[in-house]
């Protein structure tokens, strides 16, 4: 991009052309051009072809599972993520630093490792599964397994988004509520919760967005039965393995459009959150 278009204010700092050039070049070659290939390839398909691939019964049930499981996992993480953030910000207990570091484990642990580890726990003969199997509760190799994996993957997004907001929350508002006779529960529901709601929603949206596209941690525990426990990203891989590149691309385009819509919504949420925090 020419310098004149982008630069507004004269600065004595050099290197704008070089660094912007590297950035635009890398962004185009690595990210934008390859991503555009999905849409260009999809645009080359006929409408019927696209609908047959992207909206087939099998694809629809895969979307339903991916989005449904991601939503359930986000809801579970809303509760336990908030609980974790609350405990880390408000209370002192031994081993707190270790616990706090452990919260980021899903960011650091490769997804394939998480996937086989969760399967070892929740398989019918696994560490936890063997206690649940006699009760008739199967987790691994069912849609519930997908939810378990997505809870693992999404947790840090909620905790790390809520934590700073909770820490910033002034004691004065809670003191005011208590002075005015509010019970602790009323203070939580009517004072604290509204203040952290934007962060909580943002954290859940981030977890949801990540969970929708998640692959590695899910495929080992899911069972991968078409129409039942097959997630959308796996269906893309299945189509590719059958050399149906067009079918894979149509599903990928559908997922990308939804992801970008989510990204847009998250950006709006963050603007809202920032406005509330600075107000």
């Amino acid at each position: 991009m020419p310098k004149g278009v982008l630069q507004r204010r004269r600065s004595i700092i050099p290197g704008f052309g070089l660094t912007m050039g590297i950035t635009i070049f890398a962004l185009s070659v690595i990210v934008l051009i390859p991503l555009s290939a999905v849409f260009v390839t999809t645009a080359g398909m006929s409408f019927d072809e696209f609908v047959a691939a992207a909206l087939s019964k099998r694809a629809l049930s895969a979307y339903r599972l991916s989005f449904g499981a991601a939503a359930v996992a986000a809801a579970v993480n809303a509760v336990f993520g908030l609980l974790t953030a609350w405990v880390l910000v408000r209370y002192e207990f031994t081993g707190k630093r270790v616990v706090s570091a452990l919260v980021d484990l899903p960011f650091a642990l490769p997804t394939a490792v998480a996937g086989i580890a969760l399967t070892a726990l929740y398989a019918p003969n696994g560490w936890i599964g063997r206690w649940l199997a006699p009760l008739g509760v199967d987790i691994a190799f069912t849609p519930r397994g997908v939810v378990v994996a997505l809870i693992f993957v999404g947790l840090p997004f909620v905790v790390r988004t809520v934590e700073p907001v909770l820490a910033d929350l002034g004691a004065d508002v809670e003191e005011a509520a208590a002075t005015l006779g509010a019970s602790r529960r009323q203070t939580f529901v009517r004072v604290i919760l509204p203040a952290i709601a934007p962060a909580l929603v943002t954290g859940c949206a981030l977890a949801f967005a990540r969970a929708v596209g998640e692959y590695g941690s899910v495929i080992f525990i899911a069972g991968n039965m078409p129409f039942r426990s097959e997630i959308a990203p796996l269906l893309i891989v299945v189509q590719l393995e059958q050399f149906n590149t067009a079918g894979a691309t149509a599903i990928a385009a559908t997922m990308l459009v939804i992801s970008f819509a989510l990204l847009f919504a998250i950006n709006l949420l963050q603007v809202w959150q920032r406005r509330l925090r600075s107000a």
Binding site: P34, L35, A37, V38, T111, A209, V212, G213, E214, Y215, G216, A232, P233, L234, I236, V237, L240, A248, T249, A252, M255, L256, S259, F260, L262, L263
Partner: peptide, 10 residues
Amino acid sequence: SVSPVVSGLI
């Protein structure tokens, strides 16, 4: 915000 699978597909 792109699924890892799509990141390979492109």
